[in-house]
Design a protein around this nucleic acid. Structure first.
Lengths: 260, 260
DNA sequence: CCCTCGTGTTGCGTAATTCGCACATGCAGC
DNA sequence: GCTGCATGTGCGAATTACGCAACACGAGGG
């Protein structure tokens, strides 16, 4: 049995990271950070100043506001990108999925309560779904997110559904925990998840999980397109394509061959 | 007069960020971090554990090593990328430069003692220079870096040249401070910088500075290609193209129209 | 099979670090 | 110019984080 894990976090570091993330969501000033974190202005200032000294933030000479330093984050991004270049691994499969479906193909992983889009191939039609890499979306209303959620053990899913904040984005967003739970059971049976205008009106998405060599779900692969092309009639056909390419990618990663 | 700036950094945060950056350069263990930073193993462990709790690191269940969490950094990258989307601003100009020169076009900004590549258009020839976004290279041996260095006031450049570590990468890397200083004076006069196999044997690069609306140098734009195509004879011609497109991009950013 | 060495992880007391208060300074707007 | 408001900076108090020491565990050797 692994030793039970620590409980005491380093406070200054914790607060510093919180301040950093605030700065990433828009320029901040010491007074804002202080209020948001419930600490003194001077403390917030010293945290921000330290982050600036280490290159993570910049300070506007005139307004005195602290801004994220894009160059620093490009550098950090570059380092992780070289460590694990998903585009290289998944690039062919994204292209294949894009070509077979005609829609934008994307790959995402879970990060806390969000899906992060880490690779994509935008569709070539005039009207195509397109968003930047690194975008995060809530788990409960995206196809990728639901594919990832459904892959967990029942108990974990149940607990998550009960405790998560199911924010509503459109009239179709599932906000009732019990409904989401049943919905996810369906996703697991089907082998794919659908986001039926639950995040954006007029946009439908389909996703399936990706397994690694230990059969663990590590990512989800899917397509996004306008409801005019991904119709309810066509949906099973698209889902079949998504699951096929997802299985191929899983196989490429060394996943044990399962059903189908 | 702005008040003179603080001097005391928050130690825990400083050490935590250092640990984070170590993890980005490869998996780390508490003992490594402790030795590198000259602190106790337990302290290093608590920093790493805090970073993990906040989502920046992951810990391998088996080896107990701490790894950077790619998803987290994709998320951070996504946030800064939307704040300042260089690809959108510079995309057309990169394409134009790539098409006119036939070589890989790239755009970089300075980050401490490095150039960070924040946007690019890979060349279409079979043999083309290509590296990932976010890559960092030393200032003193890259064309982009030298273009940025030469744009500074003389005093600043002189001080930097004297104090910087001029690491050698190929036989042609300039490592003598005095030579680099003269070289940069030449760059300023010419209006463009050349990396003549100073970073990679067989690769030549040409770059020119980009100015914003205040005539401040904020980035550098350039091309990279094999010495077989960017020959010494052709070099002035390529340089002319680079400077032209760089001037166009500067103009797009609202830079006051200068000479030429 | 035991013993040792190295490392991850945790408890604890101390002392250094950080935090909050108070104030100086600068800036915008009546 | 005076007033409100925010940044930036000493300074003392005490919380916090640090290092020490110990435990658990696995690897490797005798």
């Amino acid at each position: 049995m692994p030793p039970r894990r620590g409980q005491q976090l380093v406070q200054s570091l914790e607060r510093g990271l919180a301040a950093l993330e605030m700065a990433l969501d828009g320029n901040v000033r010491p007074s804002h950070v202080a209020e948001a974190l419930g600490i003194d202005r001077s403390t917030a200032y010293r945290l921000l100043y330290t982050l600036m000294a280490k290159g993570y933030l910049l300070q506007d000479e005139r307004t005195r506001e602290f801004t994220s330093n894009p160059a620093k984050f490009f550098q950090l991004y570059g380092k992780v990108a070289t460590l694990l270049d998903w585009s290289d691994v998944a690039g062919d499969f994204l292209t294949r999925l894009r070509d077979q479906s005609g829609e934008t193909a994307n790959l995402g992983v879970r990060q806390a309560n969000n899906v992060i889009y880490i690779a994509h191939k935008p569709g070539q039609a005039a009207l195509s779904v397109n968003f930047a890499l690194g975008t995060s979306r809530p788990l409960h209303c995206s196809a990728l997110g639901k594919a990832l959620l459904a892959a967990q053990p029942d108990a974990v899913t149940a607990e998550w559904v009960a405790s998560a904040a199911l924010t509503s984005y459109t009239a179709k967003t599932i906000t009732a925990p019990s409904r989401l739970k049943r919905h996810l059971e369906r996703v697991r049976v089907d082998g794919y998840a659908v986001d039926d205008e639950e995040t954006f009106a007029g946009v439908r998405c389909i996703a399936a999980p990706i397994h690694d060599h230990r059969a663990q779900v590590i990512a989800a692969l899917g397509i996004s397109g306008p409801t005019t092309r991904i119709t309810h009639e066509q949906l099973p056909h698209f889902a079949e394509t998504v699951m096929q390419v997802a299985a191929q990618l899983s196989a490429e990663l060394g996943a044990p061959v399962a059903e189908l």
